[in-house]
């Protein structure tokens, strides 16, 4: 069902576009390594946003939302329509998409996640539900936008900056900048606003938060709305890197999961580091080893990482108290 993606090897062509190529296979200079790493980092930051969303939901509810990747795709497609087809000005288009996904996320949270959560279903049941949700989104996208890979104008420009031997596309810098701003905003949200503090309280201890009078029935949908918006932002930013396909989300979800597991469930910085590791290793493997099996290798990196550091980079393993 998600076959399209792997069948389109040029999916990440823009990542490798301005590369040296002619200098011979192993004459890959330092410049190119840096260039690849920066591209990988940009991609990784786009994994980090949905990854952080996954961590947010997990901490608040103990649940995994498999559809996170498809919400990302959905954000991208909405942008395709609002900006690429309706030609609304870019900032307004972004606001429209974020508003729509915020509403969608809140609705999902209050109609689906919250009622299931208070029914005390096992995470396995709810997880199956989110897989079904993911399939529903993918197929809705297929019906609405068709199976072909789609893209729209790259507002960040297509002319690479040149630094010595390095060529860096402008969207790479834009992604760095936007994610940096987002991190600051999130930091502000979680440390300075009542809503953010309430979200943190719910994430720490759901029951205690409820006893303290926090409206869990609103905070949990809000948490899910926030993570949906984060995924959508990623979806908006990803088009210069990858064209949109309905199945894009599946692999992205796995990589976002991988990022959050590597970084640990605890923090934004964990998701960022995890995303960076996945994005950079994927990009390097695609160029230096094999583009066909880049995902296989990336997963192997992740799996070995998990095996040698279960719990992520930042988490200390605790001895169970008996």
């Amino acid at each position: 069902m998600q076959a399209e993606l792997a069948r389109v090897p040029e999916a990440d062509v823009s990542l490798r576009m301005p590369e040296v190529g002619s200098k011979g296979e192993w004459a890959v200079g330092l410049a190119m390594l840096v260039q690849l790493s920066l591209n990988g980092l940009a991609l990784g930051l786009l994994y980090a946003l949905p990854a952080f969303g996954i961590a947010l939901i997990y901490n608040a509810t103990g649940l995994f939302n498999y559809s996170q990747g498809d919400l990302l795709t959905l954000g991208g497609y909405l942008m395709l329509t609002v900006f690429g087809v309706w030609h609304l000005p870019y900032p307004i288009a972004v606001l429209v998409v974020l508003g729509a996904t915020l509403a969608l996320g809140y609705a999902m949270g209050s109609i689906y996640f919250f009622p299931m959560l208070i029914q005390k279903f096992g995470p396995s049941v709810i997880l199956i539900g989110t897989v079904a949700l993911s399939v529903a989104i993918v197929n809705a996208v297929l019906l609405l936008w068709g199976p072909m890979a789609k893209s729209y104008e790259n507002v960040f420009g297509n002319k690479a900056f040149q630094f010595g031997d390095m060529y860096i596309m402008p969207h790479v810098f834009w992604i760095f900048g936007i994610v940096a701003v987002l991190v600051i905003l999130l930091q502000y949200l979680f440390t300075k606003t009542i809503t953010g503090l309430a979200m943190r309280a719910v994430a720490q201890n759901y029951v205690a938060a409820q006893l303290m009078g926090i409206k869990v029935n609103q905070i949990i949908p809000l948490t899910i709305a926030l993570s949906t918006v984060l995924a959508a932002i990623s979806g908006i930013l990803i088009t210069p890197i990858q064209p949109l396909t309905p199945q894009l989300g599946g692999l992205l979800a796995t990589k976002a999961f991988a990022s959050v597991l590597i970084g640990g469930m605890g923090s934004m910085s964990g998701a960022l580091v995890g995303g960076a590791i996945v994005g950079i290793s994927e990009t390097l493997i695609a160029t230096l080893v094999t583009p066909t099996y880049k995902d296989v290798f990336t997963f192997l990196v992740v799996v070995s990482f998990l095996l040698f550091r279960p719990g992520g980079i930042f988490r200390r393993i605790e001895v169970e108290k008996v």
Partner: peptide, 13 residues
Amino acid sequence: LLVYAIILLLVIW
């Protein structure tokens, strides 16, 4: 598949 997924969702939900 869309309908199928929605039915699954409803069954679980």
